[in-house]
Simulated scan of single mutants.
Amino acid sequence: MIKRIIRILLQIFPRPVLIRMSLLINRVVAIFLVGNKVECPVCGGHFRKFLPYGYTKATGRDNCLCPKCLSLERHRLMWLYFNKETDFFSKNLKVLHIAPEQCFYKRFKALANLDYTTADLESPIADVHFDVQEIPFAEETYDVVICNHVMEHVTDDAKAMNEIYRVLKPNGFAILQVPMDTDNPNTMEDPNVTDPKEREKLYRQKDHVRLYGLDYGDRLSAVGFNVVARKYAQELDTDLAEKYRLPMDEIFYFNQK
């Protein structure tokens, strides 16, 4: 029942509305899931299980959404990567976060070492609003750009990647995770596919314009990034990965200028 309710809410309400709704209900829901079987490394919450999540029956999955901070598997993986593999939480960095995730927003904004700016087309928690294909900032402005699960919505993803590369400082890095079919070597896209139902069938969501394959790293390299691809969850302790409910097959791309 919970899975169906979440799926309906995701289908009906636009993301800005969902963000506002989540602020009101997530802490209430968390009370009913108190336990110690799973843990969220982002907020430190312990629960008997996470909530289900997914836009459709095909993409829906159980035990993945933190009821306290709303992190998903990919968010928890990125948090661990930043902690263990980068100086994101300690070095003075100028950061641009495009389409800021609810679970990161307040935590990143509170970090004294970050000069942190959020951006989006329409999100109510964004500081500035723009199209990622035309970023209104000067070249070499940011040390870090975060832009997760955005490229699959963008008409010209190469242009968006070039814009992100442009505003990065030399040696800066970008985290640009996307939904991916790891069984397909090639990205699937067709500009003639415009029907929402057909897009949902082909690309997993009605507002996606492509489904990336294993050539995603090549697309990132093509704009100039030095790309390091790792199945990072598989490098971590197995019991810990299970407790955090990490995406074991997700390829994590670290993209450096």
Rank of each mutant, 00 (worst) to 15 (best):
E73N: 08
L33P: 13
D120V: 04
A58C: 12
L80T: 01
F89S: 01
T117I: 13
C40A: 03
G44C: 05
F47K: 03
F104H: 09
A99P: 09
M78Q: 11
P124Q: 10
C64V: 15
K94V: 03
T86K: 05
C43R: 02
F82P: 06
D115R: 12
K109S: 09
Y53E: 05
Y55T: 15
H75P: 15
D62P: 10
A126Q: 07
W79R: 09
L72I: 15
N63R: 03
R27N: 13
L93A: 05
V42F: 00
N83A: 07
K91F: 02
K37W: 03
P100L: 08
L65H: 02
N113I: 15
C69P: 02
I125L: 10
A58N: 13
N36G: 14
L77K: 02
T59L: 12
E101T: 12
R107K: 15
K57L: 12
A126F: 12
C40S: 08
T117E: 08
K109F: 02
L111C: 08
F82Q: 12
P41N: 07
R48D: 11
D120N: 03
A30V: 10
Y55K: 14
F50N: 01
L93T: 02
F104Q: 05
I31H: 10
E39T: 04
L93P: 06
F50L: 03
H46N: 14
P52N: 03
A112C: 08
L70M: 14
D120H: 05
E122Y: 09
L65C: 10
L33F: 14
P52G: 09
K91C: 08
D115L: 10
C66I: 09
I125E: 00
L77H: 11
E101Y: 06
L121G: 11
M78P: 00
S71Y: 08
F108G: 04
I98A: 02
L33T: 10
I125C: 08
C103G: 06
L111W: 14
V95K: 08
